[in-house]
């Protein structure tokens, strides 16, 4: 068995995103997310992919006609902290029972059945990406038929999260093994949201592979990361700041040609 050389990342082209919501529905279907007859209490919702509607309403000088609106699909940003060689996502070190860890492929994992539900990881997450099962997940009657055996049904009182659909990676690896390919680095896969995107706005791939599309897009002029304004600072300043504290350093990149979306990433 070779060591894992991949580092999975994502690039989302907001210029191509129509906000149709196919990614979020596909994610829920793939990950057996709970169903409720009323899920309008949005802060208690259990979703991995949140389609955030963003406008630049906050700019006081803007009037009707000047504002714009966009949808930002937000899932776990798979942070790695300052040092990618020794990843330190904000949520992993805090877990008292080792229910979450960061894999050698950079994916922040979560063990559904290990979690005691203390929600410390939720408190630590700057992207509101972790969700807690406030109510008992309910799959009324025949809705159970549509559940996938690849992902455990979550328990009430546990935190669950987006894992870049790592179970699909395992599925693909098993397929490769069946073909006799033992090299884990030969296994490629696409998470559910990326494969469902009708405009191909979500690109998934290996950030370690310089030739991959996601690597190319991550270096694009249009690229930015959510609320990660340290990226815009000069090198010297960056070094100074990183000496003070860790930065999430997410592996999900967003692309937009609109300056206002990038401006919205900074608090005023």
């Amino acid at each position: 068995m070779a060591t894992m050389k991949r580092k999975w990342g994502m690039a989302i082209d907001l210029d191509k995103c129509t906000g149709c919501g196919a990614c979020s529905i596909a994610c829920m279907q793939e990950n057996n997310l709970p169903m409720f007859t009323d899920d309008s209490d949005s802060p208690k919702r259990v979703t991995f992919l949140d389609l955030m509607r963003v406008t630049n309403d906050r700019d006081t000088d803007k009037k009707f006609g000047d504002v714009e609106t966009a949808f930002i699909p937000k899932m776990c940003q798979q942070c790695e902290g300052n040092d990618p060689k020794n990843p330190k996502p904000p949520c992993v070190s805090v877990c008292p029972v080792v229910a979450t860890d960061v894999g050698d492929d950079g994916v922040v994992s979560q063990i559904w059945s290990r979690c005691i539900g203390c929600r410390y990881c939720q408190a630590s997450c700057p992207y509101e990406a972790r969700v807690f099962n406030w109510w008992k997940p309910d799959y009324e009657g025949s809705f159970k038929e549509g559940l996938s055996p690849d992902v455990s049904v979550p328990s009430r009182g546990t935190v669950i999260k987006c894992t870049f659909c790592s179970h699909i990676w395992k599925r693909e690896r098993d397929r490769m093994l069946a073909k006799g390919v033992k090299d884990i680095n030969a296994v490629l896969y696409t998470p559910s949201c990326a494969s469902a995107c009708p405009t191909g706005a979500i690109i998934f791939g290996d950030l370690n592979d310089q030739a991959s599309e996601v690597s190319r897009l991550a270096k694009d002029k249009r690229a930015f990361r959510l609320v990660h304004t340290i990226d815009d600072k000069p090198e010297e300043e960056k070094k100074r700041l990183m000496a003070i504290k860790h930065y999430p350093n997410p592996k999900v990149y967003y692309l937009s040609s609109k300056q206002w979306i990038k401006d919205m990433q900074k608090f005023k």
Binding site: P96, V97, V98, C118
Partner: peptide, 30 residues
Amino acid sequence: DIGQPLRAWFGYAYPNWGHGLMPQSMLTEV
């Protein structure tokens, strides 16, 4: 406060010690 009180003993059974003596998670230490 914890979602799974029946799993509270996981804190003793699977503590997040990290490397060495210092616990990794402040909550484990607590």
